[in-house]
Nucleic acid binder design. Structure first.
Length: 504
RNA sequence: GGCCGGUUCGUCUAUCGGCUAGGACAUCUCCCUUUCACGGAGGAAAGACGGGUUCGAUUCCCGUACCGGCUACCA
């Protein structure tokens, strides 16, 4: 096999990177790396008019975050530049005209309005071999007429002329042999009236010129593959065609259809890899990164959505995925996206993450929440204590902010109703005892607490909750004595005193 | 409508002719935790339907049903 696995990726015309797109790139990456190939990704925009600034850079940032960096960065040039279709426009046109010259394609002068009317008049109208003889194109018009229209600069498109009753097919890496009869497929537009190619022409020309070896794409492209196969046959030879794999779709969790970015807002989960703001509409689509997912968990989740290694293992690092990946085990059927399961993956990776790898992220997060961390030693201890309790990174705010600043709100309503002089005395006593304590370890704090409780003839259970509220502000967080141990003597005592004043 | 794909617990999936159909998420019960989680133990939960082939079909073949995709001068 060619050592270089070259892959091309076209971003969505409106920008952003859907998780389905990430998965496509991920499988490409895994396949390339598993086979000891180089992973070379070419990103191009698809349409000048719809091109959104920053779309390519955004995609590279996403891939970088995921750990899927291509071996050569080609976003700003490289051997096969330019990548923007608008800059390659003339080249596509030449190929389209060549096809017309060879009788494999033809000029069509039908206006969009005429086509619209036709579709209204004839149900299920298709521009194909059964209908093209009744349309305005270079097959039905005589040469003089065609020349006249061209001279008058009448807009035209170039359509592929689908042959009659031939079987075209290919072997899909996932699905095996797939065949089509050319009589069933329509005469797709190859070159639009504005001179830009459609995807069908562009994908074939670019894959050839950029020496693409493997093309992975979504299942929705399967029906147009006969067009592409024919173009390969006509233009560059079937033997040069990349190997294709059509990946199953990621479906909506409820209802039907493929997962769209709108479903994210509707159902409350991200659909893109990272936040993306459409520069034209200002519309924000949420990303997994900003929602607080770890990249390891994100790609792990995506890989398992459509692939598994046949064992019961579910948690894989990228390295393990590369090791175990095989195309044969990629599923054929689409999978409904399950956000709960996605969060489970993140929790698993959270537990596995080291304190060091989380430290800067958590520090940043706390800063954004208005909590400044000055003591990195304490931060490490806190993360260690708390990370198993966090599913998403933002959970660290609630779980650890109170270690660095005394709680802004103290939930006194949770203790006030059952408060009495007796308890008040206990905490006064506790302050005194803690003040005198030489050590400040979890076990010592607990023992002192219990001894005083026993002496005051109070059950520790009645006192633990108030103590917790005093230290963390609410009914949450790790064990109270763990909290007290990290807070230190002075801070613990201060917090007790402070709340005692509130409940009186 | 046509074409192309797909079809195992609610969801993601294991099974490559021999099953008491396994796991995970979610759900329920219990335990642990004198907070909230984590964690632990257990329960309920599936092979779309009909025909073949076979000693034996979830597994192979054919039909039907259902789901999805495509059927744009969008990708």
């Amino acid at each position: 096999m060619d050592k270089k696995v070259r892959v091309r990726f076209a971003p969505s015309p409106t920008g952003g990177l859907h998780i389905g797109g990430v998965r496509t790139v991920l499988f490409n990456y895994l396949f390339a790396k598993h086979n000891n190939g180089d992973f070379i990704l070419r990103i191009e925009d698809t349409d000048q008019n719809r091109f959104v600034p920053g779309a390519e850079e955004y995609i590279f940032e996403c891939l970088k975050w995921c750990g899927l960096e291509p071996d050569e960065s080609v976003v700003h040039g490289g051997e096969y530049a330019p990548y923007r279709q608008s800059e390659r426009k003339e080249m596509y046109k030449q190929y389209a005209e060549q096809l017309a010259k060879d009788g494999k394609a033809y000029y069509a002068f039908d206006t969009p309005q005429e086509l619209e009317e036709k579709r209204k008049a004839v149900s299920n109208f298709q521009y194909d071999q059964s209908s093209r003889s009744g349309m305005k194109n270079s097959l039905t018009l005589n040469d003089d007429e065609i020349k006249r229209l061209l001279n008058e600069n009448q807009p035209y498109v170039i359509r592929i002329k689908m042959p009659h009753d031939e079987t075209v097919g290919f072997v899909d890496m996932i699905r095996g042999a797939v065949n089509f009869n050319t009589s069933q497929v329509d005469d797709k537009v190859l070159l639009k009236a504005d001179g830009m190619p459609t995807y069908h022409l562009a994908v074939v020309v670019d894959d050839y010129l950029m020496k693409i070896t493997h093309a992975f794409r979504g299942e929705e492209w399967l029906p147009s593959s006969p067009v592409h196969i024919l173009l390969w046959q006509y233009l560059f030879g079937l033997e040069n065609m990349p190997q294709w794999a059509h990946l199953p779709l990621i479906l909506k969790p409820d209802g039907k259809g493929k997962l769209s970015k709108r479903d994210g807002d509707r159902l409350g989960f991200p659909v893109f890899a990272m936040n993306w703001t459409d520069p034209k509409t200002g519309e924000l689509t949420h990303g997994f990164r900003e929602r607080g997912f770890l990249p390891e968990a994100f790609i792990n989740m995506l890989a398992l959505l459509g692939w598994n290694d046949g064992t019961e293992q579910e948690v894989f690092s990228l390295k393990q995925l590369v090791e175990k990946f095989s195309m044969e085990r990629v599923h054929k059927g689409g999978a409904k996206f399950d956000y709960e399961k996605a969060k489970w993956f993140n929790h698993e990776w959270m537990k596995r993450s080291t304190v060091d790898s989380l430290q800067s992220m958590v520090k940043q997060l706390l800063r954004e929440a208005g909590v400044e961390v000055n003591d990195d030693g304490r931060l490490k201890a806190v993360i260690e204590l708390v990370k198993d309790r966090c599913t998403l990174i933002p959970d660290f705010v609630q779980q650890s902010a109170f270690f660095f600043q005394s709680p802004k709100e103290i939930d006194v309503t949770a203790i006030k109703p059952k408060w009495n002089e007796h308890k008040q005395q206990f905490f006064v006593e506790l302050i005194r005892a803690y003040q005198l304590s030489i050590t400040w370890q979890h076990d010592d704090l607990e023992n002192i607490f219990k001894e005083i409780a026993a002496a005051s003839q109070l059950k520790p259970g009645e006192l633990m909750l108030p103590f917790r509220i005093m230290l963390v502000g609410g009914k949450f967080g790790p064990g109270v004595f763990d909290v007290a141990a990290i807070l230190g003597k002075q801070e613990t005592i201060d917090r007790i005193k402070r709340t005692l004043q509130l409940v009186q």
